[in-house]
């Protein structure tokens, strides 16, 4: 009964000391992540208006901001980039709102502290949320692509679109983690305000509303540090090909890693929001 030593946790499965059950632990965490994702989606889908909102918003933005500007809409290169920029914006706002606000709200409800008592490592709840909200975010891109194909000169082959979706999912991770960090740090009312400020900063700064070629040099240099700018370049590269500047993938990997670490630390530290 020597019990004082802390045994390695399954949460960081990649760091634990080698043990026979490690693979089983990872498999178990993956299975539980899918369970969490399934029930998260089920909860969301039961309130259909929530889904419709995130499905319609990016498509409306395309209709109002891009389609009427024929100089952009009739140029295949610019139109495609505009669709991509709005897709990145859709994924980002879905990530920021979907996590920032829902996590902040959940932390104020008694169900969330209860989930923390279940025998699952913290990463399971993160992964479940990422899968569920990420799936919804990707579904929201579909109408955007359809409108882009029908009402603008944007063009991409089926393979390019698939590649674009994969890259969108991957490069959207940092904004999901930013959302989670906000949700874990602020109460829900503050989270709404913080999310809105950060969303517009990331969207403009990342060249999602105005293309970066219209930026002054200093803003362009600053913009390269933003995950949204990195995501934009990565998705454009995945869909349109061409050259990719080194800072986009490196920056995306670094920000994904750092933000994930931040989220896990915040989750471990989080002891729920309590009123005393």
């Amino acid at each position: 009964m020597t019990t004082t030593t802390r045994t390695p946790r399954r949460a960081g499965a990649e760091t634990g000391s080698p043990q026979p059950s490690r693979l089983a632990a990872i498999r178990r965490a993956a299975r539980l992540s899918l369970v969490h994702a399934r029930f998260n989606l089920l909860e969301t889908v039961r309130v259909p208006i929530a889904v419709i909102g995130s499905l319609v918003f990016p498509a409306l933005a395309l209709l109002f901001f891009v389609v009427p500007q024929r100089a952009v809409a009739d140029d295949p290169l610019f139109a495609t980039q505009a669709v991509i920029s709005l897709s990145v914006f859709a994924i980002m706002s879905n990530g920021l709102f979907g996590y920032g606000i829902s996590i902040a709200e959940n932390r104020e409800k008694p169900w969330d502290p209860y989930l923390r008592t279940l025998p699952a490592p913290g990463i399971v709840r993160v992964a479940g949320l990422v899968l569920a909200t990420g799936t919804l975010g990707l579904v929201a891109i579909v109408p955007l692509v359809v409108i882009g194909a029908l009402a603008t000169a944007a063009e991409a082959s089926a393979v390019q679109i698939v590649l674009g979706f994969v890259m969108l999912g991957l490069s959207g991770l940092p904004s999901m983690f930013i959302g989670m960090a906000i949700g874990l740090t602020f109460p829900s009312k503050a989270a709404i305000a913080v999310v809105q400020v950060i969303m517009f900063a990331l969207a403009f700064g990342g060249g999602l509303f105005l293309p970066p070629m219209m930026f002054p040099a200093w803003l362009d240099a600053l913009s390269r540090f933003l995950p949204t700018r990195q995501a934009r370049e990565l998705v454009i590269w995945a869909v349109q090909g061409g050259s990719l500047e080194w800072w986009a993938p490196v920056g995306a990997l670094v920000s994904t890693g750092l933000l994930l670490a931040l989220v896990l630390v915040l989750m471990r530290r989080d002891q729920g929001r309590r009123f005393r």
Partner: peptide, 15 residues
């Protein structure tokens, strides 16, 4: 989490 495999808890305030 392994310590909680044999632990049963209940949500508060029936949330």
């Amino acid at each position: 989490p392994r310590a909680r495999q044999r632990l049963g808890c209940t949500p508060q305030e029936t949330g």
